[in-house]
Amino acid sequence: MGVAGKLGNLGVVTTTLEAAINWGRTKSMWPMLFGLACCAIEMMSTQASVYDLSRFGMELMRASPRQSDLMIVAGRVTRKMAPVLRQLYDQMPDPKYVISMGDCASCGGIFNNYAIVQGVDEIVPVDVYVAGCPPRPEQLIHGIMTLHEKVKTQRIADWA
């Protein structure tokens, strides 16, 4: 017995290709399992029982950049880490998105010194900045929702 038999007649939904693809992208956006510093702990909280990121189809954290769509730069990026971060970004398949989580990743935060890159946007293009030091899990979820809104506005014409 197939799905139709169990659920009854689901009927037909007509939509545009754009909307269907964008919907698919937002509902199964796999983040990369990549924590740098303090924010990574809050990212773990977001994943865990109370905040439960899997409600948004994102419970599957991929340790390999080849399998992930979203890079959450969680924490301060040092000058030693910067080339590694860029390499990871280059290894991700298109379409790829970057969330800069926390003040340190967004602008250097309180660490305005020799070791820290003043904003990860100097290394990889960032889609959404999340403020906070570290941001609460709700803030990160809001950042992800904002990214979803952005993804929904993507046009087929721009992909080529």
Binding site: R76, M81, I110, F111, N112, A115, I116
Partner: peptide, 10 residues
């Protein structure tokens, strides 16, 4: 050193 933040200097 991939997370060396220069906290002591700062």
């Amino acid at each position: 050193g991939y997370l060396h933040t220069g906290i002591e200097k700062n």
